[in-house]
Each structure stands twice: as C-alpha cells, then as structure tokens.
Amino acid sequence: MAKVLVVTSGKGGVGKTTSTAALGAALAQSGQNVAVVDFDVGLRNLDLVMGAERRVVFDLINVVQGDARLSQALIRDKRCETLSILPASQTRDKDALTPEGVARVMDELREKFDWVLCDSPAGIERGAQLAMYHADQAVIVTNPEVSSVRDSDRIIGMLDSKTARAERGEHMEKHLLLTRYDPARAARKEMLSVEDVLEILSIPLLGIVPESEDVLKSSNVGAPVTLAAPDSMPARAYFEAARRLAGEKIDVSVPVEKRGIFDWLFNKKRVA
C-alpha cells in the first residue's frame, strides 16, 4: 500500500515540478516503486522535465474518464525502471477531473506502488484541491521570499481543512522543502533564513535545496537532477530529503557558502 504525497506550494514557479521529479527519482533510485502524477491539467510539464514528453499516449484524464487503463497511461522511466509517470492532459481542462474518477485512480495507484507523488498545480483552486485531497503527507515547496511564504501558509491551512484526512479528523503530516536557497545572500541577511521560514510556518523541515545551475541544466536535458547530476548540491539535498521521507532520521544539512581566497580574488561564489 503506497504512501500518497502531494507536492504543493500555492505560488507558482517555486519548484514543485522540479522537486516532484527529483524526489520521485531519488525514492525510485533507492529501489522503491514510485509513480509521479501530474495534476496540472492544461499546463502539464512533469513529462517534459522528466524527458518523457514524446512518449505520452494516454493521460490522467483518459484514465479518470475510463478511456484508457492505468497501465496504458503510465510511462516507465528509461533510466530508472522503478519510476513511472502519469502525465496530465495538455488539451483538456481541469473540469474533466471528477472527484470520483480521481479517487478511483488514486486507489489503483496505491495498490501498485510504494510511493505516489502528486505534482499540484499552482493556486488554491479546484486543481490544487484535487491534487491534495487524497494525500497522506504533503511536501510544501517554499522559496525564502515573502510571497512564497505567505502562499505556503495558506496552503498549510487548506491541507488541514480540505483533504480527506482532515475530513476524517486525522493528522496530515507536512514537510517544508526550502528551495532556491542562496546561503550567501542569507548570510548577508538579504534573504529570509532557514530559521525565519521555519519560525513563521512552523512545520518540520524536509530539506534545503540551494539555488544551483544544475537544476536548470537537468531540466534542459529532461532528467530529474538526482539522475542527471547525482553529485550536485541540489541532488544531494533531494536524496537526503527522500531518505527522510522514508523515515530515516538524519540531520538537515544547511548549505553554507564556501569562499576560498581565489574565489574571493575573482569574486566568484560557489556553494558547498
């Protein structure tokens, strides 16, 4: 029986899709069966970020409406065989997702996989609510920036009131994933620090993903950063986060800026 996880944020562009791909791949790389599901109907991108855009035949809406079987719509990743993608529809709109249909698909996914990661659309409307409704746990992706933190706070409130778990009176486990963190700017107090964000949102920290060129490079070539650049800082942060999701107790490493004399001379920054 799978654990269903929603990756959500409220605000767009903070790294939900990147994080869904990276966490999903990291869990799958440890040998667990993982499905990543794109709920962003009309603006699907998980397939593109994962390099499966040319292999999409059927999508979530086809399965929800009974036009295709789940096994026909799932795309198995070519680099990691325990990782599958269920793409969203690009042409239909989100009204085609019925709550009953989504519930049926989620039940089927739960039986087949160890982990189901739902990539939520931005916003707090129907699409985002459907993505979170069946979740057992939530990963809230937040940038250290005022609008993102505010929207995350709003989403946390919704997770506690508008999900199946909340309706049953059960606790929804929530994890904060701080992305695009720039340790140098945080050190200069130009950016909200990890402590600031944790104090404001008061949910446990899953990981800190530093701002890095490797993230864009990976999405350019259509691979989760944990597969494309497994030794990079962001990939290491995602691997750690995945282990924490699986229940391991490991300390969150805070990326710190390391500047050697040469970096200083040439005014280069690097993150280590």
């Binding site: 920036e145 005022v146 505010r150 706070d153 107090k189 130009e190 600031d196 404001i200």
Partner: peptide
C-alpha cells in the same frame, strides 16, 4: 536588514490572515 523586515512583515500579516479564515 531586509530579511528582518521581511520576517516581521510576514509575521504580522500571517497573524492577521490565519485568524481571518477560521
């Protein structure tokens, strides 16, 4: 620092918004 301003603004705003919803 600008980050301290950000933190304070958020804390005041969210204290307000959290109440408004429930």
């Amino acid at each position: 620092s600008s980050s301290a301003v950000a933190r304070d603004r958020l804390q005041i705003l969210l204290a307000h918004e959290r109440g408004a919803g429930e």
